[in-house]
């Protein structure tokens, strides 16, 4: 258990530094600029409503540091989950970290985003924080259920290609349909639809990239993968 956890933390440290740089160079300047636009360009907002408890510089430093820690935290979680769940994760030793990271992304980010989409600065949530906290936990559970369901469908399908299609089907369907069914819980906050879409795209890209990087680093730090380690299940199909 210890070597796998160590490998996860190391992968998290490497990827966390890259994600911290991404936060410093892209996310922070963009978010801060959008906050400016939302404060000064939007109507009906009085300046006092959005005043922050700390300075701009502190926000920058702490946000970048949080990015690094976020990478380490998710890396540790991936390592620990990999130790326990590896036998249940489909794929070869080379692809399993990616499958598990995908399940992590689904649980930690995509699930909650189904009903609580990422918001740009200036956009306001309409639900109370306590309601959202409960909702967030429920949606994470929904994301995890989707991942388990996808794995089960993959195993039931006859061959690998059909298995991948069957496994991805409920996930793609949920991502396509659920956001349309759930009520809008955020206000536009004076930003254009295009800008909000672009900002959301960046957030999704950042988190997906983070998980992809974690899986890559985790695999790279582990033993060299061989072609002979297919599970009995996969040798059958």
């Amino acid at each position: 258990m210890w070597p796998t956890l160590k490998r996860g933390v190391a992968a998290g440290g490497l990827v966390g530094v890259v994600y911290g740089l991404f936060t410093a160079v892209v996310v922070h300047p963009l978010t801060a600029s959008l906050a400016e636009i939302a404060h000064h360009g939007g109507h009906g907002h009085d300046a006092g409503a959005h005043s922050h408890a700390v300075s701009e510089t502190t926000t920058a430093v702490v946000s970048v540091g949080s990015g690094v820690l976020w990478g380490i935290f998710l890396g540790a979680a991936l390592g620990l989950a990999y130790y326990f769940l590896e036998p249940a994760v489909p794929g070869s030793s080379a692809t399993r970290p990616y499958v598990l990271a995908g399940a992590g992304f689904l649980t930690v980010s995509v699930g909650p985003w189904l009903a609580l989409p990422p918001v740009a600065p200036g956009m306001e949530h309409q639900l109370a924080a306590s309601t959202r906290l409960v909702l967030y936990a429920g949606l994470m559970l929904a994301g995890a259920v989707l991942a388990v369901l996808g794995t089960a469908l993959y195993r039931r399908a006859g061959d690998r290609r059909r298995g991948v299609a069957a496994g991805l089907a409920p996930i793609v369907a949920a991502v396509a349909v659920v956001p349309l069914l759930t009520p809008t819980v955020v206000t536009a906050g004076g930003l254009s639809t295009d800008l909000v879409a672009a900002y959301r795209g960046l957030v999704v890209f950042g988190q997906a990239g983070l998980w992809f990087g974690l899986a890559t680093a985790f695999r790279w730090l582990g033993p060299a993968p061989t072609n002979l380690d297919l599970t009995p299940h996969e040798t059958q199909i």
Binding site: T23, V27, H28, T31, A32, H52, A53, V54, T58, T59, A60, V62, S63, V64, S66, G67, W70, S109, P112, W113, P117, P118, V119, A120, P121, E124, H125, A129, R132, L202, V203, V204, G206, Q207
Partner: peptide, 20 residues
């Protein structure tokens, strides 16, 4: 806590986790 919470502001936006 507001101070810590605000300091992580852009990170939370970037990670798609927001509380305000």
């Amino acid at each position: 806590d507001p101070m810590v919470h605000d300091a992580m502001h852009t990170f939370r936006h970037g990670a798609g986790i927001t509380c305000h």
